[in-house]
């Protein structure tokens, strides 16, 4: 099977007044299908930029990005939106649910943009919400849910269009440790089902769940750990 992510010589340069900042400085990264990858690094190391690039929210200055075997590095805004909609699922630190929509409506937002019929979308969103343990909260608004529940809604929403790649940015950052563990267990389940996951974190305990961890420094990958020992134990 092909790789989900293939970044080659990836550069992203910002202009800050007179200076040029190389947020990504010739980075190479390959993520095979089904991998659970953690990205760690200090703030300013370029991990947020990398996440934006991987999430098709931003474009490379040079180099190439193949997502799911398709070169997306030169796509226009409309096509990038399309890729985000069909191939990507986002989970954010602060959940980023739309406050005036119910649980089901929030889950259905990406489906609407994919042109899925309302009836089918409702069926899918109900299934997803129920599967993630939100069965009793379908008509609630985000403000009526706990943090853990809100993050589950966000995960359900990310799964709505069956993405090739799920991106999670500090998914447990706003949660207490017990709830954080629940969410991490949920991500483990998804990885076990064969989903490709990339988690950006500065928390070692979060990164410890991943198959592989890359450490970023100055827009490059400084170091890479593979969970060899644990992978061997069942």
């Amino acid at each position: 099977m092909s790789d989900v992510v293939r970044l080659t010589e990836a550069r992203r340069t910002y202009r800050m007044g007179e200076e040029e900042v190389h947020a990504l400085d010739g980075l190479d990264l390959v993520v095979p299908r089904g991998e659970y990858l953690a990205i760690m690094g200090q703030s300013g190391s370029g991990k947020s930029t990398l996440l934006n690039i991987l999430g098709c929210l931003d474009r490379l200055t040079s180099g190439s990005y193949e997502l799911d075997g398709k070169d997306v590095s030169r796509l226009d805004d409309d096509r990038l939106s399309h890729e985000r909609n069909r191939r990507l699922g986002f989970v954010f630190q602060s959940y980023n649910l739309i406050p005036h929509l119910t649980v089901l409506e929030n889950i259905e937002v990406p489906m609407e943009y994919a042109g899925i019929r309302p009836g089918e979308a409702r069926q899918r969103s109900t299934e997803l919400a129920t599967r993630l343990g939100l069965g009793g909260r379908l008509k609630h608004r985000p403000s009526e849910l706990s943090g853990g529940q809100q993050q589950r809604v966000a995960i359900a929403r990310a799964l709505g269009n069956d993405p090739s790649l799920m991106l999670a940015d500090e998914p447990t950052g706003n949660l207490d440790s017990a709830t954080g563990i629940e969410i991490l267990d949920l991500l483990d389940t998804l990885a076990a089902e064969g989903r490709t996951l990339i988690v950006v974190t500065h928390d070692r305990k979060v990164a410890a769940r991943a198959h592989r961890t890359i450490h970023m420094l100055d827009g490059k990958i400084a170091r890479e750990d593979r969970r060899v020992a644990e992978a061997a134990t069942p």
Partner: peptide, 9 residues
């Protein structure tokens, strides 16, 4: 959020 979830301009 909507843009991230795939809304076009």
């Amino acid at each position: 959020i909507r843009r991230a979830l795939g809304a076009k301009r």
